[in-house]
């Protein structure tokens, strides 16, 4: 009884005899290896971009959503009283976990990136900021605004919604762009492998003619080319991924003031993600070469 094997199983089992019939060298070998390496390298960056923007979107979406700010602008003599009144009001507001007034040092630190560290903050009419951290389902922003308007006339509630939403949206778009780049890289790998496989098949048309003459089935001939191109794509992509990971490693660290750009990279177990790229490249090469080989062979006598 003859056992029918799937193309992937046949590939994994390998056929040393099919491997031998195709000449081992050629221009297309280097072309495939280089293309796969370049695409593997780029894929690491696309992946890093997707993961970094994902983290950013999560942070902006979750962490910032849990906090709000109350800004109190009042004449100098009333500032302390209004701050005290606002804090009391917050203590009795449902959904507020904690609230605290920022010290003058903290406010100076917030302004330092714009005005420098030597700003004489005491001489300026700087509003008092109160940081509010939410709990549970959060507080009723509109209700709080009305109560503040009644009890603390100089207070303005900023629940971050206005500036947080476009930032989260931008981060999500960037994440989508990263994944789209990965898909495009995969498609480009498939296109390049197909072209290289077609070139190799055309260059070996005499060899294929001899194989057909002695009774080789298309699957035997295709397997010889498919296996070679798949292994080249796997090797090339692995090389590209190693280089890409090294490049990501030497990027500047994710300093707090550096923001998004210096945070481009992998964190924790996300370093395992690049390991997926070489097998994926091999899979793309496997199907691209298989399709190209069967299409070309069909046109041969």
């Amino acid at each position: 009884m003859k056992i029918e094997l799937s193309p992937v199983t046949e590939f994994l089992l390998a056929d040393a005899q099919a491997d031998r019939v195709v000449p081992p060298t050629g221009f297309t070998a280097w072309l495939t290896l280089f293309s796969a390496a370049a695409m593997g390298f780029l894929a690491v960056f696309a992946l890093a971009l997707s993961l970094a923007t994902g983290r950013l979107a999560d942070r902006w979406g979750n962490e910032l959503a849990r906090s709000s700010t109350i800004r109190i602008s009042a004449p100098e003599g009333q500032m302390a009283a209004q701050t005290e009144a606002a804090l009391r009001l917050l203590e009795t507001t449902a959904g507020v976990a904690s609230a605290r007034a920022l010290s003058s040092e903290e406010e100076a630190a917030l302004l330092a990136p714009w005005f420098g560290p030597d700003l004489p903050i005491d001489t300026l009419p700087i509003p008092q900021l109160i940081e509010v951290v939410e709990e549970g389902a959060g507080f009723d922003a509109e209700g709080l605004r009305l109560r503040l308007a009644a009890e603390v006339p100089g207070a303005v509630l900023d629940d971050h919604t206005r500036w947080r939403r476009p930032l989260v949206r931008a981060a999500e778009r960037l994440r989508l762009l990263g994944w789209l780049s990965l898909v495009l890289i995969g498609a480009a790998v498939a296109a390049m492998i197909t072209l290289a496989a077609n070139a190799a098949l055309a260059a070996n048309s005499q060899l294929i003619g001899v194989l057909r003459l002695v009774g080789a089935r298309d699957t035997f001939i295709a397997r010889a080319f498919v296996r070679r191109f798949t292994l080249r794509a796997l090797g090339g992509a692995a090389l590209g991924v190693v280089l890409g990971c090294l490049a990501v490693l030497i990027l500047p660290g994710a300093e707090a003031e550096g923001g998004f750009l210096t945070g481009l990279g992998f964190q924790g177990w996300h370093w395992l993600w690049p390991l997926v790229i070489p097998p994926l490249a091999a899979m793309v090469a496997f199907f691209a070469t298989r399709m190209a080989a069967h299409k070309t062979l069909k046109d041969m006598p």
């Binding site: 056929d15 005899q17 099919a18 031998r20 019939v21 000449p23 081992p24 005499q206 060899l207 003619g209 001899v210 194989l211 003459l213 002695v214 009774g215 080789a216 089935r217 035997f220």
Partner: peptide, 21 residues
């Protein structure tokens, strides 16, 4: 007499055996 030039004469003669598994 087309042959596979990268294989030895012996392997070329055995080619039909190779392709038939």
């Amino acid at each position: 007499c087309k042959f596979l030039d990268h294989l030895s004469v012996s392997d070329n003669i055995a080619l039909p055996l190779m392709v038939s598994g």
